[in-house]
Design a protein around this nucleic acid. Structure first.
Lengths: 106, 106
DNA sequence: GCTTACGGTAAGTGACTACTTACCAATTAC
DNA sequence: GTAATTGGTAAGTAGTCACTTACCGTAAGC
């Protein structure tokens, strides 16, 4: 778990890529529609979608002339599992901190 | 929610920073101990800790000569909330995709 | 007092990456 | 058939960022 790649986190770190993911999570959309709602060019959107697809955060399917992208719950599940794991650890170590006040040491 | 900064995601995107966070989530540690377990220099660790602290993922407290860093559950909670929100949306839109098979269009 | 340990900061550098324009392939419409 | 729409890819570039070494402040030990 520690040596995990967690490429999904890296993918969602970019604001534009996160915006794209949020748009397709709202509802599946073709590339052109995504580019219209974003301040970047259409090739940029294509490149971002390629990254999101590689890490399993989106899926695509041909629909006539267009290619419709949708959010993939599987990719999100991996990130949720990662955060949930450290949630428990963080809570435990944080509790240790609180119980051990700074005046404790001699 | 969409215009959120989500700096925590950006912070955890870097592998070294993620490793640091995982170490302090396991148990609170001083800077030197973190540097010993990582393939980067101590100043690099300090810089990463500064970022993690700014986005609220870790807290620090002076302990004698050392400075002990611990994971902060509040920062993690924000990320969890973000992913959970899009989890529902992704599930819904993904269900639409599945129900509407590619052979549907005329 | 002086020395040692610990850690934050400054400055500089190399690598990565998000973006652009240009080009090409494939499907639809006529 | 040709023209138009859609979108993926190539090549090049500018900005960001993770890292290093060097330096300085502060607390503990003698």
């Amino acid at each position: 778990m520690t040596t995990y790649q967690l490429q999904g986190l890296t993918a969602l770190a970019d604001p534009t890529r996160r915006a794209i993911f949020e748009l397709v999570a709202d509802r599946p959309r073709p590339v052109g529609e995504l580019a219209k709602e974003l301040p970047v060019s259409r090739p940029a959107v294509s490149q971002h979608l390629k990254v999101l697809k590689e890490v399993g955060l989106v899926t695509d399917r041909a629909q006539g002339n267009r290619r419709v992208y949708a959010a993939n719950p599987d990719g999100l599940a991996e990130l949720r599992a990662y955060l949930d794991h450290f949630w428990d650890q963080a809570l435990a170590s944080f509790r240790d901190i609180v119980e051990q006040t700074p005046e404790d040491q001699p």
